[in-house]
């Protein structure tokens, strides 16, 4: 088993291009996560009881499913009700929703960890409940939310590898088809692993910087 550098450099450009798709799909689903998660968290914390129960049930159901099943659902079951998306956008939707559910739990537990006193003080000062949450609790919770949220971004990148099953041309799909095409196994596997390590390592480096910055 020797390492073939010529093959390594021959296939590298195709995988780097695929890494671009991995980044794109992860960033777009992060965007969707950031849009949906606060809504879910607020719905669960502030909504009227029926809304609260619905949001909680939705969160529990998604958390109880492997991401692969959510992806398959978006790809195979949504067209049945008239929502037809390309593999790429289907991936963005599935990962964005899964990410949002976990991020909503992060937001909720951060707000709840502030303690009752904060909310009571705000209410006693005459703030409306929703203003108290948005203006008093959320800014304080933000410091506790950001570090785990960047961690969720690393998870989104890892989960984007699952989109290979709905033929999105990201790192895992391209690498897998190259392996079957060329039978060059080790070199391509190493490339895939290194590309993920660089992207995810970069994200967790930034997250540590952010955490340090917030602690000051």
């Amino acid at each position: 088993m020797s390492f073939d550098w010529a093959a390594f450099f021959e296939y590298l450009p195709r995988l780097i291009k695929a890494a671009g798709v991995t980044l794109q799909v992860s960033l777009l689903s992060l965007g969707l996560t950031c849009l949906l998660a606060p809504l879910l968290a607020m719905g669960r914390l502030l909504g009227p009881p029926p809304l609260r129960a619905t949001v909680q049930a939705f969160i529990e159901v998604i958390r109880g499913l492997p991401p692969l099943v959510v992806i398959a659902f978006c790809y195979f079951a949504l067209p049945k009700i008239g929502v037809v998306l390309s593999g790429f956008w289907c991936g963005v939707l599935a990962l964005g929703v899964v990410g949002a559910v976990y991020a909503a739990e992060i937001i909720r537990s951060a707000i709840e960890s502030l303690g009752k006193g904060q909310l009571e003080a705000a209410l006693a000062l005459g703030f409306a409940r929703w203003r108290a949450v948005l203006d008093i609790l959320l800014p304080q919770a933000l410091r506790r939310i950001l570090p785990p949220l960047t961690n969720e971004f690393a998870n989104l990148i890892k989960a984007s590898s699952l989109l290979s099953v709905i033929s999105v041309h990201e790192i895992s799909q391209v690498g897998q088809s190259l392996i079957f095409e060329t039978f060059v196994v080790i070199e391509i596997l190493v490339q895939m692993a290194v590309l993920y390590l660089i992207i995810i390592g970069g994200v967790s480096f930034l997250s540590r910087r952010l955490e340090k910055g917030l602690a000051e």
Binding site: M1, S160, L162, S172, G175, V185, L189, L197, I200
Partner: peptide, 20 residues
């Protein structure tokens, strides 16, 4: 390695490298 790569890659590694 385990935390920095998706489990899919780790599964591929076992699946493709052991036969080699």
């Amino acid at each position: 390695f385990v935390r920095g790569t998706p489990i899919l890659i780790q599964i591929f590694a076992v699946y493709f490298i052991l036969p080699k």
